[in-house]
Every structure is written in structure tokens, then in C-alpha cells.
Write a protein that binds this DNA or RNA. Sequence first.
DNA 1: AGGTAACCGAGACGGTACGTCACGTCTTCAC
DNA 2: GTGAAGACGTGACGTACCGTCTCGGTTACCT
Lengths: 212, 212, 212, 212
Amino acid sequence: MEPPAPSTDMPQDPPAPRRRPGGRTARVRALVHGAVREQLVAEGYDGLTVDAVAARSGVHRTTVYRRWRDVGGLLADVLDSAADDGWAPPDTGSLEGDLTALNEEVAAGLTEDPPIAMALIAASFRSPEAAEALRRFWDDRYRRCAPVVERAAARGELPGAATDDRALLVAATAPVYHRLALLRAPADPALPATAARTAALAAGAGAFAVPG
Amino acid sequence: MEPPAPSTDMPQDPPAPRRRPGGRTARVRALVHGAVREQLVAEGYDGLTVDAVAARSGVHRTTVYRRWRDVGGLLADVLDSAADDGWAPPDTGSLEGDLTALNEEVAAGLTEDPPIAMALIAASFRSPEAAEALRRFWDDRYRRCAPVVERAAARGELPGAATDDRALLVAATAPVYHRLALLRAPADPALPATAARTAALAAGAGAFAVPG
Amino acid sequence: MEPPAPSTDMPQDPPAPRRRPGGRTARVRALVHGAVREQLVAEGYDGLTVDAVAARSGVHRTTVYRRWRDVGGLLADVLDSAADDGWAPPDTGSLEGDLTALNEEVAAGLTEDPPIAMALIAASFRSPEAAEALRRFWDDRYRRCAPVVERAAARGELPGAATDDRALLVAATAPVYHRLALLRAPADPALPATAARTAALAAGAGAFAVPG
Amino acid sequence: MEPPAPSTDMPQDPPAPRRRPGGRTARVRALVHGAVREQLVAEGYDGLTVDAVAARSGVHRTTVYRRWRDVGGLLADVLDSAADDGWAPPDTGSLEGDLTALNEEVAAGLTEDPPIAMALIAASFRSPEAAEALRRFWDDRYRRCAPVVERAAARGELPGAATDDRALLVAATAPVYHRLALLRAPADPALPATAARTAALAAGAGAFAVPG
DNA sequence: AGGTAACCGAGACGGTACGTCACGTCTTCAC
DNA sequence: GTGAAGACGTGACGTACCGTCTCGGTTACCT
């Protein structure tokens, strides 16, 4: 949190690595990002090889390996760059409504075709880098959902002094993820609402209240 | 509740309608099953290749390809053969207690080292056959858990005429799976109980009641 | 002077009842051998890469790596298979005549175009396997030249009880190799004869006599 | 007589024809020369890459490519700069003695460890520039050996009016080079003397006499 | 007891992808 | 405006594993 201390540079201290934000490097990155997305859509995760991305992007294999190391690195970079969108949680006027809408977004994402979200989850099991990126992505998403809980508290829907928003949000969305991503059961149109209602009900009963 | 640990038991009679149940064929199957489990423990899923299994089992590569086709087929067979253990859900005298115990089993399975359960989940994302086998396995496990709900109903813990036992069980266990398998957050010792309490609370409030 | 060994590079007796003449393995070997020679002629040693040989032969890269390991292995195999020709040293009726003829063969080999011999020598500096194969090749050639010395002795051209034939032959041929392969001086039409005369003269003076 | 060992001395003044003798250019050249020699000693010829030399010398890759073009250029420059040492042929009082001493130097150079001379020879087969430099180097060495023949003539060891000193010297040294560099036979302690005696004997018999 | 279909061992091969290395060029940023 | 730092295109390397093929040899089940 403190400002960076001025480097007490010793003789021959290498200067700060200069960035090259514009030009070829940036163009290559954009080309590769696009190719990753297209390849994922076209062939699914199992078709997402470095070779295929390189061929599709027109960038050379070696360059991809140099900059992204492997498929996990590619996905991580794409995921991170995707985290900068302006996503915001729904605001329906009630906790259960918000959670239901959230779950419906989740369900839609997990069942869309091509199955990009599933591909990313699959990737996270093969590449630590992709796993970490996905973790960061979800962390960011859950953090942005905090207002859902705060608004509910402000409306008096939640008892007690404070509520563990993350626990509540995870409890609300977990059944959808579990059913679709792990159990691989067919989509249940009622599940988003059911899971939301369950979590909202438990929250109203103080299940996620923070002591103190 | 988690995918099974590799048992080192000897070949039990496969109830499959196989043509030649005895002798060499069965021995080969047992050798390969053992090698799959050992390899999974030793090298993780990414090290679970047909070649490695063949080498470890002493069975020839070609034979493995002939009978199991690929890694997914190997895992599916092993998973299916593991479904015949005598697992039964806990019985603690209360719905919340049963669910908590169940969740603790799940959490233990997902965090054990070597991470066999995680390896199987990872496999399910790469092989349709393994995915189907894992689906069958979980289906079987949830089915065996039905008595937990039935006992709770008999004790009068659940309102209404009938409860969707599967929905209740999924809701109870989903947060644990979600946190550990997807979000990859560190294990939270309180989560099994919290998730169980949440689900039990919602169930008590009729969230999983079946109409009619 | 042992009789020429039967060549082992052609398909030997195919016990195949209904198969095409020659098994796949032998056909692959023949294809690759041919491609090595062609590539060497077409592109020289620096163009002799595994990839190029594979492409030219129609055999897959991986197969070449599996069986020959690297360029050195390829050359070694080709060299060894070439050692089974029926080469015999010249027989002109005099030691100096034989050595001159031998040197002229050496000079012709080292100056031919495409420079296959030079390419093999170059290869021997990059691959231990090729070096060893070349060593074996020369050893075989010098061994076959022993009759040159024996005939000279029988004619009474050599003093003493015995002559170190290898030393004599190396002394006779070394200047040609040295000038053309190492010093890379232009070919000197007189050198084969000069070097032969020098060696013959020294031999006649007993320079290569074996004591005892 | 063998290619020079890498001297680890610091930059001596380059007697460059028209270059700026001092300053950065000379310093860079010295750094690179040193790095080439060190790299050759440390990793052998196969480890002598432009990248490695640049890294070892601290000079940028691009600079090396600009000034020396490739590995052959590097070696050629180093070899040429090494030709300026003060090497002189032995002077033992007899032709055979001189040639023996010369051969022993050659043999020592070809069998030293690390095998720098062999590395240079290897390089000469891969880079025309290095080949030409090595040719120049040997030419210079043989030229400096002329006094060996002149002294022998002055002592009356050589018949006729004149002797082809180069031919004599090549004949004397060729067996050593041939055996060690091409045939790769183990070092024979007697060979330097044998080859010297052979050549001296032939020379005494007028084998290298120049007509006219 | 013997036949025979099914199964297994063995080895090579074509093929995709991996990840690395070095070469030599080209572009961009900083001076 | 120039030139050094570094990113890139290019080609080759050697490896892992995949899945297939063919051949030949066993084995277990059935008649």
C-alpha cells in the first residue's frame, strides 16, 4: 500500500524493463487472443492446442510458446483480459430475485453452445495457470456481487448485524454449478429459482450471520 | 460420497455378461485395474496414460487399447467396478448431523493426497466415457443417501407429504464441491456443517417439498 | 582377405505366405537409405536433416527418430550398409603402382561432386555414431588393402621379416587426405604418385619393418 | 603446428589494417574474442553459438551478428588474430629431429583436452569462413616451417638443387593428422617419430627434389 | 479330448502435439 | 534519426503419447 521506494540502484543495476505497449507486440497479443476464442468456439477445449492457436492467429508457434508458455497460459491471459468487462450483478429489488437472476446467468453460461465456460473449467483441471486465472475470475465476480447482499441487508431482509456475503453467494450458486458442471445432469429450469430461494430462506433465518 | 480411493482388492467376479469371465482375461482386467489406481496415485491424472498403465500392469499396450480403447474407458471401468463397495450414508440421528457427516466425507475425499477424487473429476472433463462413469457413480451415491432423507421425514423433521431427496442432498453438498473442486478455495473446516445446516434449515421450511 | 559378407540391407527371405515381397520394416529402411543418399547429393551435409530425409523418403519423422535417433545414426547405417560392397584394392604389379592407384581413388572420392565423402567426414565431427561408423569403414578399407603389402613382400620389395602394413598404408594415403580434407588445398594431380612413391621408398628402406 | 590454444590474455592491440585501434570497437572485439575462446573451452564447438558468445561476452546479439555474421565469422576472426603469435618451428639440429618435434606438437594439439584443435577442424566443415581461416592458419604455419627444410639443406641432408619444402612438411605431418583427426585412432606415441623418419628418409632419397 | 474362436504379446508405423533451441531479421522505443 | 534491445518468423530438434496394423502364439470354452 505504501508507494514504491526509489531504488537505491547499485552500479550496473539494470533499468526498469521497458514496456512496448504499441505496435507489433500488442497486435500479436490481440491476434492470439482472438484465435484462442475462435478455436475454443470452433473445436472446444480439446482442440485448443498451441499449434492450432498459432495457425489460426497467423502468429508463429514459437512466439506463442515464448510468451504464453502453454495452453494454460493462453487461457489465463484471455481470462484475465476478460475480467475487465463492466459486468454487474442483477438488481431486481429482492434478495431471492437477485439470486435467481444470478443463477440463471450462471446456468446460461454453463449450458451455452459452444461450451466456453465448461471449456475453461476443463482447462483449469489441466493447467495450474488456468486454474489460478479462473479462481481470480470467480473471485472478482463474487466480489462484484457483494452489493446484492448489501442491498438485501439495507432492505432488512437479513437478520443480525452482518452477513457473510461470500458464503451466502456461494451457497446460492453452488447447486447450479454442481449440477451442471460436475454432475452433468440436464439443465433444470427450476433449479436457479429453487437454489436462490433455499439460500435466501437460510439467509433470512440467519444461517450466514457473522457473529459479533 | 467422493470418488473411491483405489482399493487394492483382488478381482471380484465381474457381473458383466462377458464371454470369458474366467482365467487370463479376468487376470488381465485385475492387473490393469490395479495399475490404473496405482498410476493415478503415483502420477496423477496427467500421468495416467495408456502406455503408463500398460507398462505398470505388465499387460501389453495393444491389449489395453483393444479392451478399453482409451484412458476414459479405463477410468470408467475402474469407477464402475468401484461402485460395488458397501458404502452407506452416515446415520447420526438428525438430518443436519447426517448431512454434516456426509459433507465431511466429501471434503475429506476432495482434499486427500494424492488427490484421486480431483483426478477423476479432471478426467471427466476430458473423456466422455469417464464423465458418464462419474455421473453414474454420483447417481449411485446420491441414491444410497435417500435413507437420510427418509429417516428425517420419519422423524418429522420435514414438512409436507414428500420431499425431493435428490434436490435436498445436492443442495447440501453442492457448496462443498463448489468451493473445493471449482473455486479451489482452501478447505474451510466449518463449511460442511454450515452447508448442512443451511440445507436442513431450508428443508425444514419446506424448500424441497414435492407438491401433490 | 575375407570374402565379402552378404549384404544385409535387402529384404531377406520373406516367409510371408501371401505378403508382398519384403516386409514393411525393410521397405522403410530402403526408402530412408535412398533418401539419405539423395538428400546428401541434393543439399549437401548441411541440408541433411532428419526432417528432410523423412520428407524425401515418405517415412514419418517419428519413425526415423525411433529407428535412427539422429542424423549420425542415419549416416552410420548407410555407411555400414555400404561397407558390404565388393571393393578390392588395385593390383598393378608393384607396390608404388598399387599405392598410386589407391591414392587416386582416394583423391577422386574426396573431390567428387557432390562431395559425399566430405559430407561424411563432416558428419563424423558432429555425431559420435557417424564418427564410429566412418572409423569402421576406414578400418575395413585398410584391412582389405593388406594384400597390397603382402604382394609387395612376396615380390621382394620389402626388406625384413615383416612389415606393418597398416602403418605403410596410412603413410601412403595420409598426404592425400590431409591436403584435400583438412588443408583444403586444390587437388594436385601429382600428389597421389608422389605420396605413393615416398611411402614405397621408405618402405623399401625398412621404415615400416616390424622388429622380431 | 596445431590450431592455437585459446589464450586468456586480455586484448592485445589489434594490428587491424584500417580500423580504429582503440575505443569501444576494439574493446568489443576483445570481449568477443575472449568469449569465443572461453566458450570453446567450456562447451566445445557444438556449444559455440552466437547467442552463447554474446551472452558470455556481454555484447548484444545484434552486434555480434552485425560484425561477424555467424559462428564461422567469429572463428575466422579469432583464428586470424591468433596467427600473430610468435610461433617458430623447433630446431634440434637434424631434419628428422625437427620433424619429430613438430609432429609431437601436432599430436599434443590434437589430443589435448578440451579438444580445441578438433573443435576448430569440426568448425571448418560447417562454415566456409572458418574453413578459409583455418586454411590460412595452416598455410602460415607451414610457411614458418620452411627454415626446417632450409637448415637441413644447408647441413647437406637433402640431395639435389632444391627441395619442395611444403611437400616434405606435409608428408611428414600428414600421418599424424590423418590418424588423430580423421581415423580417430588412439594416439600412438611412436607415430611422430615414425612419420618424421619416413619423410626424412624419403627426402634424403630425393623424393621431394624440385627439378631444375 | 480336441477344435476353435477369442484373446494376448510383440513390434513397427503414421500421426499430432509438445516444448526447446538457435538462427537471422525486423521493429520500436529511447537517447 | 539512429541504433541497441528485444520481439518475431523460421526451421529443426527430440520426445510423448495416441491409435492402428499385422503377425504369431496361447488360452479357455464348447462340442
